[in-house]
């Protein structure tokens, strides 16, 4: 027993140290005064000057805003298509083209990004030649590309959430005469809401994070934040990137933690309501 405890503690400590040490060191050096980033300048540090520089950098601010816009559109589109696909795969039983659909929703999870990026760019070029749309490349093509690879994640989340419920509630509603659309909006959608919320957030972060696919399908003048960061860090470390990273980590961590707590609370409330309802009916 005791040996297992020690093993547990060692495995988790080593693992989480590996996961968090780089992030923490990056955050730490964002307050460094020296340009050399990793050489601590004790006399003039800590300083916030890189944060100030960051908020004066138009290029980074513009790119960040573009990334937020693309991320929000992507997440919304991915939730729409992903929920439909998850619904179809989990509830619609056999139909023609089912295997292909399930293949097309799992392959993007592992497909190397360079292949996805290249193939989508060639599609956009071919489409522009053939029908004149999409004219040129920019935010629109990036969004389409992002929806395509992020909807796979939403599909998986929604599908496994639906698989966790049996369809007796939906059938009951159907028996009571509700039409399919009404059953979906009144019964199924509230049940899978947590999956949709986490799917939206996941799609947003995946889109916000993507550099390879964006690089392929972006046109001139539409640089997302990761593209700007990538071209900066290729030249080596720079302190304002550390500052940017620190801000990102703090923002994302607080959103994720708040989201998790909120979802846990909702679950608990619903559990209590179910119990109360059951008790009343006894």
């Amino acid at each position: 027993m005791k040996r297992r405890r020690i093993f547990q503690a060692v495995a988790l400590t080593v693992g989480f140290a590996f996961l968090y040490a780089p992030i923490l060191s990056m955050m730490f050096f964002s307050f460094n005064n020296s340009r050399l980033v990793t050489v601590w300048d004790a006399a003039n540090s800590p300083t916030l000057k890189w944060y100030v520089a960051l908020f004066r950098n138009e290029q980074i601010l513009d790119a960040a805003w573009l990334s937020v816009e693309i991320g929000a559109m992507t997440a919304t589109g991915a939730v729409f298509f992903g929920t439909l696909a998850g619904m179809v795969l989990a509830r619609f039983g056999p139909f023609r083209g089912r295997t292909l659909l399930s293949g097309m929703t799992t392959a993007p999870l592992v497909m190397p990004e360079v292949i996805t990026g290249l193939s989508l760019l060639l599609l956009f070029v071919a489409m522009e030649q053939a029908i004149g749309w999409p004219a040129g490349r920019g935010a629109l093509t990036i969004t389409i590309a992002h929806i395509t690879f992020t909807m796979a994640y939403v599909t998986v989340i929604v599908q496994s959430r639906l698989a966790g419920f049996d369809d007796s509630l939906e059938e009951a509603a159907m028996d009571l005469g509700a039409r399919p659309a009404r059953v979906f909006f009144r019964i199924t959608l509230p049940l899978i809401m947590p999956a949709i919320v986490s799917g939206w957030l996941l799609a947003f972060t995946l889109s916000w994070d993507d550099v390879v696919i964006s690089q392929f399908v972006a046109g001139p003048g539409s640089s997302t934040l990761p593209m700007v960061i990538f071209s900066k860090v290729r030249l080596g470390v720079s302190p304002d990137v550390n500052a940017l990273a620190t801000l990102l980590v703090i923002v994302v961590a607080s959103i994720v933690i708040a989201g998790t707590l909120w979802m846990r609370r909702q679950e608990r409330l619903r559990d209590r309501e179910t119990r109360l309802a059951l008790a009343e009916n006894k």
């Binding site: 040490a21 780089p22 992030i23 060191s25 990056m26 050096f29 980033v37 990793t38 957030l201 972060t205 916000w208 994070d209 550099v211 990761p226 960061i229 990538f230 860090v233 080596g236 470390v237 990137v241 550390n242 940017l244 990273a245 990102l248 980590v249 994302v252 961590a253 994720v256």
Partner: peptide, 14 residues
């Protein structure tokens, strides 16, 4: 959930 790119970047500093 935080940026993949920045986590790779963090290793350059290390």
């Amino acid at each position: 959930f935080t940026s993949f790119l920045l986590r790779v970047y963090a290793w350059i500093g290390l």
